[in-house]
């Protein structure tokens, strides 16, 4: 996945069974973002792999004051990349089991 400056990781073990998964997101490289996020912490949230859209969560983070609108696209892409990796691993685990 491209280094967007925003890191997204699993906030819990993924057993591959639940649709909803806890993720944790934080700014790792401030220079890659347009807004100023010097003292920002890590943001943990739940994401439904089947129903939800990464860009919508990113917009909610902007509306909650975590990010500037100008960084919504970057945040959305970072979440999308991690979600894609989680889904890919799940599919690989299932196909290996068959």
């Amino acid at each position: 996945a491209e280094d967007t400056g925003v890191r997204v990781e699993l906030a819990e073990e993924d057993d591959g069974k639940k649709d909803s998964i806890a993720l944790k997101l934080w700014v790792e490289d401030h220079k890659k973002l347009k807004g100023k996020y010097k003292e920002s912490g890590a943001i943990e949230f739940t994401f439904d792999l089947e129903k939800e859209v990464p860009e919508v969560v990113a917009q909610e983070m902007v509306e909650s004051g975590f990010f500037h609108e100008s960084d919504a696209k970057t945040v959305g892409k970072s979440i999308r990349d991690r979600v894609a990796l989680i889904k890919w691993r799940r599919e690989r685990t299932v196909s290996a089991a068959v």
């Binding site: 934080w26 912490g41 509306e63």
Partner: peptide, 27 residues
């Protein structure tokens, strides 16, 4: 560790905590 919670109008809960220690060293 100090955490804070922000609930978005759509109902999603965001829990804010310090960036994981290991990642700070990497920076």
């Amino acid at each position: 560790s100090a955490t804070a919670q922000v609930v978005h109008s759509a109902g999603r809960r965001f829990i804010v905590s310090p960036v994981p220690e290991a990642r700070l060293k990497e920076q």
